[in-house]
């Protein structure tokens, strides 16, 4: 089955991105396809490569990048929500791409299920 995932909160402040990540890992482990992960609202902050948590904490941005690399995930950051929060191409972590909200609608159309993680 093809899943779309929408992440609406940034890293650390809320559990949403962690939950979405765990969901994605479990879905891939079960042989499902992730059609796209779309980052919206403060969720765009997950793509910030300058993210640097303490060493004993998880690096959420790096986790997403690694998952994308391992599974060729399409991870899209909303351009408008990103610009509003200073998330631009020059600070994007590997695996993230900037595109329009149309990519969210497209994910809703093409994926069998769209799962929203927010707060």
């Amino acid at each position: 089955m093809k899943f779309g995932i929408l992440v609406n909160e940034g890293p650390y402040q809320h559990q949403a991105s962690d939950s979405a990540y765990q969901f994605a890992v479990a879905a891939l482990a079960k042989g499902h396809e992730i059609y796209r992960v779309f980052f919206y609202n403060d969720g765009v902050n997950n793509a910030n490569k300058l993210t640097e948590p303490p060493q004993d904490d998880r690096n959420i941005t790096r986790q997403w990048s690694a998952l994308a690399a391992a599974h060729n995930l399409d991870m899209v950051v909303c351009v408008a929500a990103g610009l509003r929060r200073g998330i631009k191409a020059e600070i994007l972590a590997p695996g993230f791409n900037i595109s329009g909200l149309g990519q969210l609608i497209q994910a809703g159309i093409e994926a069998d299920r769209l799962v929203v993680f927010g707060d």
């Binding site: 919206y40 609202n41 149309g102 809703g108 159309i109």
Partner: peptide, 19 residues
């Protein structure tokens, strides 16, 4: 919070996609 405003932006794009 910004949710209402950014939800409205999703609505406008959804309409542009003829959904």
């Amino acid at each position: 919070t910004i949710y209402a405003l950014e939800a409205l932006e999703v609505v406008l794009i959804g309409a542009a996609f003829d959904q």
